[in-house]
Amino acid sequence: MAHWLLKSEPDAFGIADLKARHNQTEPWDGVRNYQARNMMRDQMQIGDLGFFYHSNVKEPGIVGIVEIVSTGYPDPTAFDPDSKYYDPKSDPDHPRWYLVDVRFVRELKRNIRLSELKDYADEALADLPLVRKGNRLSIMPVTDDQWSFILGLEDR
């Protein structure tokens, strides 16, 4: 099993939105970055777990855990002219954009803030892309050690 971090702006789609969905499951659509797309298409597997991260808020941070419940498949919003994620260059026969379905597992006991995670950027989280300057990826891998360390922060 692999671990991931998935970013979303809570004004657009937050952990509460996922929790409220039918079967607490939702396609993770609208990703328009090739590196993030490749991770969803080629690496994410059913049963992988991910941190749900709220971005672009006063105190960004990890607020919950999700499970990957599908392998990557073409993102239909890329083909829908009425979608804000429409990509006129995307072809259903040769899709450019992919997504996975995620299911709500649980909310964390507290928001583990980005500022707190950065406190460990020279130690346990040195290789976590999230704490590196200039990283804007909406999806990133999390090592087993990083996963365990971050979960350990939940009760601090």
Rank of each mutant, 00 (worst) to 15 (best):
M1Y: 12
M1S: 15
A2E: 15
A2D: 15
W4S: 08
L5Q: 05
K7G: 14
S8W: 14
S8E: 11
E9F: 12
E9V: 07
P10R: 03
P10N: 01
D11G: 10
F13R: 03
A16T: 12
D17C: 03
L18D: 00
K19N: 08
K19Q: 14
A20N: 14
A20R: 14
R21E: 15
R21Q: 15
H22L: 09
Q24I: 02
T25R: 13
T25N: 07
W28H: 02
G30S: 09
R32G: 04
Y34C: 06
Y34H: 15
Q35S: 05
R37W: 12
M40G: 10
R41Y: 13
I46E: 14
I46F: 09
D48H: 09
L49N: 09
Y53Q: 04
S55K: 05
G61A: 07
G64Y: 09
G64F: 03
V66S: 07
Y73H: 14
D80R: 00
D80F: 02
P81Y: 10
S83H: 06
S90F: 07
D91G: 00
P95W: 02
W97M: 07
Y98E: 09
Y98H: 05
L99A: 08
V100K: 00
D101M: 00
R103F: 08
F104E: 01
R106I: 04
R106T: 09
I112R: 00
L114I: 00
Y120L: 00
D122Q: 15
A124P: 01
L125I: 07
P129L: 10
P129R: 08
R132W: 14
N135H: 11
V142E: 04
D144T: 13
D145L: 10
W147N: 05
F149R: 08
L151R: 06
L153E: 10
